[in-house]
C-alpha cells in the first residue's frame, strides 16, 4: 500500500530523483566541525518557527510592545519557552554561524570552486547580525531602547552621510514608534525574505559542489 502510494507520487513528483540528488550522494569523510553549517540551518529554522509564533501576540508599538512581551512571558501557556528559544537561539545562531565560518576559513574551503558559496555565507552572517540588531529593539525595554540608541548613533557617525543614515534607520531624528515599526518590518519580512533566498542559494551550492574535503598536507 505505502509502496503504491510512493510509486504513484514518485511518478508525478520525481521523488526518487530528489532523493538521489540530495540524500544519496557521495561526500568526503569529514569531522564534527562540519556539522556547524547544518546546526546553523537548524537554529535558523527554530528562529523562524518561534518567531512566527511570537507574532501571534507581539505588537510592534511603543504602547503595547513591552506589555505584549510581558504577556507572552507570564500570561500565555509556554510563552516562556517560545520566547526563551527565540532569545537564546539568536545568540547560538550567531555563534554557530561564526564558528562555521572559521571552519571554512581554516580548511580553505572558500577556494575554487566554492567562492560563491563563501560569498553567500558572508551575506548570511551579516544578515544574521542584522536580524540580531533589529530584533534587539523589539521588546522595547530599557536595554533594547538604549542599545539601539547607541547602535544607530554609531551608524550615524559616518562623515557626510551619517545623519541621513541615522534618520533612515530611525525613521526620523528620534528613536520612536517609527523606528520600532520599521525594525519590526525589517526583522520579520525584509531580512527573512532576503535570507531565505540566500540560504537556498547557499544550500543549492553546497549540494551542487559537494561538501569540501579536509585538505591534506600537500594540498
Amino acid at each position: 500500500m505505502a509502496q503504491n502510494v510512493y510509486d504513484w507520487l514518485d511518478e508525478r513528483l520525481g521523488l526518487q530523483a530528489i532523493y538521489d540528488a540530495i540524500l544519496d550522494r557521495e561526500v568526503p569523510k569529514v569531522n564534527w566541525w562540519f556539522t556547524l553549517g547544518s546546526a546553523s540551518l537548524f537554529l535558523g529554522l527554530m528562529q523562524g518557527i518561534t518567531g512566527i509564533l511570537l507574532s501571534v501576540y507581539y505588537v510592534p508599538t511603543p504602547d503595547h510592545a513591552y506589555d505584549s512581551i510581558t504577556y507572552i512571558m507570564t500570561g500565555v501557556k509556554f510563552g516562556w519557552l517560545i520566547l526563551g528559544i527565540h532569545h537564546w537561539g539568536a545568540s547560538l545562531l550567531i555563534l554557530t554561524a561564526f564558528i562555521h565560518m572559521l571552519r571554512v576559513f581554516f580548511y580553505g574551503a572558500y577556494k575554487y570552486p566554492r567562492e560563491v558559496t563563501w560569498i553567500t555565507g558572508v551575506m548570511l552572517l551579516i544578515g544574521a547580525l542584522g536580524m540580531g540588531f533589529t530584533g534587539y529593539l523589539l521588546p522595547w525595554n530599557q536595554r533594547s531602547y538604549w542599545a539601539t540608541t547607541v547602535g544607530t548613533e554609531i551608524a550615524g557617525s559616518v562623515p557626510g552621510i551619517g545623519n541621513i543614515i541615522l534618520r533612515i534607520l530611525r525613521g526620523g531624528t528620534d528613536l520612536s514608534a517609527l523606528t520600532l515599526s520599521r525594525f519590526f518590518s525589517l526583522h520579520i519580512w525584509i531580512f527573512p525574505a532576503i535570507l531565505l533566498a540566500v540560504v537556498l542559494t547557499h544550500l543549492y551550492l553546497v549540494i551542487r559542489l559537494g561538501i569540501s574535503n579536509i585538505p591534506d598536507e600537500d594540498s
Partner: peptide, 15 residues
C-alpha cells in the same frame, strides 16, 4: 517538544 507547547501557546487565551 516544540509543537505541542506551540499548540497550547496558540490556543492559550481560549483555555
Amino acid at each position: 517538544v516544540v509543537g505541542l507547547p506551540a499548540i497550547q501557546y496558540f490556543i492559550s487565551p481560549s483555555l
